[in-house]
Lab assay of single mutants.
Amino acid sequence: KLLSSIEQACDICRLKKLKCSKEKPKCAKCLKNNWECRYSPKTKRSPLTRAHLTEVESRLERLE
């Protein structure tokens, strides 16, 4: 599967780190437990900047 097509777990399953069936409108866990089942939009991760990478590398060197 391509990364862009990976389905996201519902908010509660993601928060509780449960295996989500990803069914809509309610996944199996939410249906069974009568929880409100919501699927928040995916958040875009910002790409690493060179400055951040350099900072992490220098912190790693100090720890070694």
Rank of each mutant, 00 (worst) to 15 (best):
Q8F: 15
I12R: 13
E64M: 14
P47N: 01
R50F: 00
S46W: 02
A28I: 13
E55K: 09
K19R: 14
K42H: 09
R38S: 13
I6E: 09
E55Y: 14
R50T: 05
T54G: 07
K22Y: 05
L18M: 15
S5P: 10
R38Q: 13
L3S: 10
V56K: 02
Y39M: 06
P47E: 07
E23M: 11
A28R: 14
C13K: 01
K17P: 02
H52C: 05
K24A: 14
A28G: 11
I6V: 10
D11E: 03
L31W: 14
S40H: 02
K19Q: 05
L15G: 14
E36A: 13
R38K: 12
S58M: 13
L18H: 13
T54K: 04
R62V: 14
L31T: 12
P25L: 03
K32R: 15
L15A: 13
N33H: 11
P47H: 04
E7R: 07
R38G: 14
K1S: 14
L53T: 01
E36N: 14
E57D: 08
E7H: 09
K1H: 11
R62L: 13
I12L: 11
R45K: 07
I6G: 10
P25R: 01
R14I: 00
K24D: 10
R45W: 02
T54M: 08
S46K: 03
L3W: 10
A9F: 01
S4E: 13
P25S: 10
C20A: 00
K32H: 09
S40N: 03
A9P: 04
R14C: 03
N33G: 12
S46R: 01
A9R: 03
C30R: 04
S4C: 13
A28H: 14
I12Y: 15
Q8L: 11
L63E: 03
L53R: 10
E7F: 13
K26H: 14
L48D: 00
I12P: 12
P47F: 00
K24L: 14
T54C: 08
S5E: 11
E36M: 10
R45D: 00
K16Y: 00
T43C: 12
I6N: 10
S21L: 03
I12M: 10
K44D: 04
E64Q: 14
P47G: 05
L31C: 12
C37L: 02
R50A: 00
C30V: 05
L2S: 15
D11T: 01
T43D: 08
S5R: 11
E61L: 15
L63P: 03
C27P: 07
W35Y: 14
E57Y: 07
C20N: 01
K22H: 09
N34C: 14
E55R: 09
K22C: 00
R62G: 05
K22S: 04
H52I: 04
P47C: 04
K22I: 03
K44T: 10
C10F: 01
K44G: 01
K26M: 13
L53P: 08
K22N: 06
C13R: 05
C20R: 03
R14P: 05
K29Q: 07
S4K: 08
R50W: 04
C37H: 03
P41Y: 05
S46N: 01
L31Y: 15
C27R: 08
L3G: 13
A51S: 09
H52R: 07
K29I: 06
C30T: 07
R62Y: 04
K22E: 05
L60F: 06
T54F: 05
K22L: 06
E64K: 08
R45Q: 09
A9T: 04
K44E: 05
E64V: 10
L15H: 11
K17N: 07
Q8C: 04
K19Y: 02
K22A: 03
D11V: 08
K32G: 09
S21N: 04
W35K: 13
K17T: 03
E36S: 14
E64H: 10
C10S: 00
L18D: 01
E57I: 00
K22M: 04
D11G: 01
R62H: 09
R14F: 01
L48N: 01
L31N: 14
L60S: 07
E55Q: 11
S58P: 04
C20T: 05
S58D: 11
K26E: 10
L31V: 13
P41Q: 06
L60P: 03
P41F: 02
R14Q: 04
C10W: 00
E7W: 11
L48Y: 09
C30E: 05
E55H: 10
K26S: 12
S21C: 01
T54P: 06
L2K: 12
S4M: 14
L18I: 11
S40K: 03
K42L: 10
E61M: 13
K24Y: 15
K26N: 15
W35R: 14
S5W: 04
Y39L: 06
T54L: 07
P47A: 06
H52L: 04
A28E: 13
C30A: 06
L15P: 01
N34F: 14
K16F: 07
R14W: 04
C37N: 00
C13Q: 00
T54N: 09
K42Y: 12
E7C: 12
K19A: 07
K1G: 15
W35I: 15
R50N: 01
L2P: 15
L63K: 01
R14H: 04
Y39C: 02
L53C: 10
E55I: 09
K24M: 15
A28Y: 11
P25Y: 02
R59W: 01
K29A: 05
L63N: 03
